[in-house]
Amino acid sequence: MTAETTIPADAAATTLRAGLKQPRQERSEATLKAMLAAGRTLINEAGSLTGFSLADLVRAASTSVGAFYARFPDKETFCALVLEDTLAELRAELDYSLATDPTWNAGPAAAICGRIVGFYVGLFRRHRGLFAAYMRHSPAQNPLWQPIREANRRILDAMVPRLASHVAAGRFTGPDNETRIAVQLVISALTSIVLHAPSGLALDDPRLEQRLTAMLYCYLSSPAAGDA
């Protein structure tokens, strides 16, 4: 794994964590992890940041309201850390894939397209409620969006050059930028499915990954491409 593609798993949550009271012992850290895990589950199930109560959270985490307020000033700060913790975990998963799966560097382009689409389809399926909750809760300029934008930028920075290097020579004047746009179209399609559930597309459709992979590959390839 190269330096430019390695980001510590907890890097995305550093800013928020720094502003919170830090656990003084292992038991306190375990309580924090339990709260974050419970919060992620509740947000995913509700599809909303307001669809669960603090009582629901502490009950699911087997802790207390006092323990919550000992660490968090309010529910919004807690929900923001749940998001950042989730994004850090996703980035760590991608780093592992980049380091262990030779397809990311060796290609061919169709296989890299499959890896990219598989990554995004997988994360939207696992965290559909959480992503929908933040997208519905906050306007695009809200600071809560910043972790999503930054995490996606870093993910694209790691993925795009690997695919762009396999795009047929001369297909685009700026293959990196064009590849980034194409991948963003895949992300936009998945976002639309999560938020609006358009007819003819479903997140759990077993054909979805294949269809999006074909769309991405066809956009970036040319009829004369061999390995593409």
Score class of each variant (00 low, 15 high):
Val117Cys: 12
Arg24Asp: 02
Ala9Glu: 11
Leu98Ile: 13
Leu163Met: 10
Gln25Val: 01
Ser192Ile: 04
Asp56Ile: 06
Gln25Arg: 10
Leu16Gly: 04
Leu16Trp: 07
Thr14Lys: 02
Ile116Gln: 03
Ile112Ala: 05
Asn177Ala: 15
Ala80Ile: 04
Ser28Trp: 01
Arg40Met: 01
Ala60Met: 14
His127Ser: 03
Thr213Val: 11
Thr103Arg: 14
Thr173Ser: 14
Gly174Val: 02
Met215Thr: 15
Ala140Leu: 13
Leu216Asp: 01
Thr6Asp: 03
Glu26Tyr: 02
Phe72Lys: 04
Glu89Ala: 11
Val186Leu: 12
Leu32Phe: 06
His196Val: 12
Ser62His: 10
Asp56Ala: 01
Thr31Leu: 00
Arg136Thr: 14
Ala151Trp: 08
Val183Met: 03
Arg211Ala: 14
Pro108Leu: 15
Pro175Ser: 02
Ile116Ser: 05
Val183Tyr: 03
Leu216Phe: 09
Arg27Cys: 00
His166Cys: 02
Gly19Val: 08
Arg154Lys: 04
Leu36Gly: 10
Thr213Pro: 05
Met135Leu: 10
Phe124Ser: 09
Arg115Asp: 01
Ala106Glu: 15
Trp145Ile: 10
Thr31Asn: 06
Ala70His: 06
Tyr219Cys: 09
His137Ile: 02
Thr103Gln: 14
Phe52Ile: 09
Gln184Phe: 08
Ala224Phe: 00
Pro23Leu: 12
Gly170Glu: 07
Gly114Leu: 06
Leu57Cys: 09
Phe124Asp: 11
Glu26Gln: 15
Arg40Ile: 00
Pro73Arg: 07
Thr5Cys: 00
Asp101Phe: 05
Asn44Trp: 03
Lys75Gly: 05
Arg27Lys: 13
Leu220Tyr: 03
Val58Tyr: 10
Phe172Ile: 11
Thr100Gly: 03
Gln25Ser: 06
Asp74Arg: 10
Gln146Lys: 12
Leu42Arg: 01
Thr103Ile: 14
Cys218Ser: 13
Asp204Cys: 01
Ala38Arg: 02
Thr41Gln: 14
Asp101Trp: 07
Arg126Phe: 10
Glu150Asp: 14
Tyr134Val: 08
Gly200Cys: 07
Gly170Trp: 06
Gln25Lys: 12
Ile112Met: 14
Ser53Gly: 05
Ala106Trp: 00
Val186Gln: 13
Ile187Lys: 15
Ala133Glu: 10
His137Thr: 15
Thr5Pro: 04
Ala80Thr: 00
Gly170Tyr: 13
Arg71Ala: 09
Leu220Asn: 02
Gln25Glu: 05
Ile181Asp: 00
Gly19Pro: 07
Leu49Ala: 08
Pro8Asn: 13
Gly19Asn: 11
Ala55Ser: 06
Ile43Gln: 00
Thr6Tyr: 01
Pro161Val: 06
Phe68Trp: 02
Ala60Asn: 09
Tyr120Gln: 10
Ala140Gln: 13
Leu201Pro: 00
Thr213Arg: 03
Asn142Pro: 08
Leu87Pro: 00
Ala133Trp: 04
Leu203Gln: 13
Ala60Glu: 11
Tyr134Trp: 12
Ile148Ser: 11
Met159His: 04
Ser199Val: 09
Thr213Lys: 01
Gly122Val: 05
Ser64Gly: 07
Glu93Thr: 13
Asp205Pro: 04
His137Glu: 15
Lys75Thr: 15
Thr191Arg: 13
Asp205Phe: 02
Glu4Ala: 10
Ala168Tyr: 12
Leu83His: 05
Glu178Thr: 15
His137Tyr: 07
Arg162Ser: 11
Pro8Val: 15
Ala61Cys: 11
Ile112Val: 15
Leu36Tyr: 14
